[in-house]
Simulated assay, not measured.
Amino acid sequence: MEFRHLESFLAIAEELHFGRAAARLHLAQPSLSQQLQRLERSVGTELVARTSHEVRLTPAGKVFREQARAIVAQAHKAAQTAREAAAGRSGTINVGYNFAAGQHVLPAVLSKMYAEHPNVGVMLHEMRTGPQLQALRAGEVDVAMVYGRAVGAEFECRPLSRFPLVAVVGPNHKWADRPGASFSELAHEPCILFRRDQCPAMYDAIHGAASSSDITLNVEYEIDDPGAVAIVASVKPVIGFASAVRGRQIGGSVRTVPVRLYDPVPTIDLYVVWKRGRANPLIELFLDCVESRAAVPGEEPVQV
Rank of each mutant, 00 (worst) to 15 (best):
residue 66 E to V: 09
residue 11 A to E: 03
residue 282 L to M: 13
residue 96 G to L: 01
residue 249 Q to G: 02
residue 275 K to S: 12
residue 224 D to Y: 00
residue 98 N to E: 13
residue 196 R to C: 11
residue 181 A to S: 14
residue 58 T to S: 01
residue 292 S to H: 08
residue 234 S to C: 05
residue 262 Y to C: 02
residue 240 G to M: 00
residue 173 H to N: 10
residue 235 V to Y: 05
residue 189 E to A: 14
residue 228 A to N: 05
residue 185 E to G: 01
residue 112 K to H: 13
residue 182 S to K: 10
residue 153 A to N: 08
residue 136 L to C: 01
residue 200 P to K: 06
residue 125 H to A: 09
residue 24 R to G: 07
residue 161 S to V: 06
residue 192 I to C: 04
residue 97 Y to D: 07
residue 291 E to R: 14
residue 46 E to H: 05
residue 74 Q to T: 09
residue 108 A to P: 11
residue 5 H to E: 15
residue 14 E to Q: 12
residue 286 F to I: 03
residue 220 E to S: 15
residue 83 R to V: 10
residue 242 A to P: 00
residue 114 Y to V: 09
residue 303 Q to V: 11
residue 2 E to W: 11
residue 302 V to I: 12
residue 289 C to Y: 08
residue 225 D to G: 05
residue 83 R to I: 01
residue 192 I to T: 01
residue 173 H to A: 01
residue 211 S to M: 14
residue 119 N to D: 15
residue 108 A to H: 07
residue 50 R to D: 08
residue 63 V to H: 09
residue 268 I to L: 10
residue 262 Y to A: 06
residue 15 E to S: 12
residue 44 G to N: 06
residue 145 M to C: 08
residue 151 V to R: 14
residue 164 P to R: 10
residue 41 R to F: 07
residue 201 A to H: 07
residue 38 R to W: 09
residue 241 F to Y: 05
residue 99 F to V: 08
residue 129 T to V: 01
residue 22 A to L: 02
residue 275 K to A: 09
residue 56 R to V: 14
residue 141 V to Y: 01
residue 56 R to A: 15
residue 41 R to I: 00
residue 235 V to F: 11
residue 105 V to W: 01
residue 66 E to M: 09
residue 120 V to T: 09
residue 254 V to K: 02
residue 123 M to V: 15
residue 154 E to W: 00
residue 64 F to P: 02
residue 295 A to N: 03
residue 272 V to C: 11
residue 80 Q to A: 06
residue 136 L to V: 02
residue 289 C to L: 03
residue 14 E to G: 13
residue 249 Q to M: 12
residue 161 S to F: 10
residue 175 W to S: 05
residue 122 V to W: 00
residue 135 A to L: 13
residue 161 S to P: 00
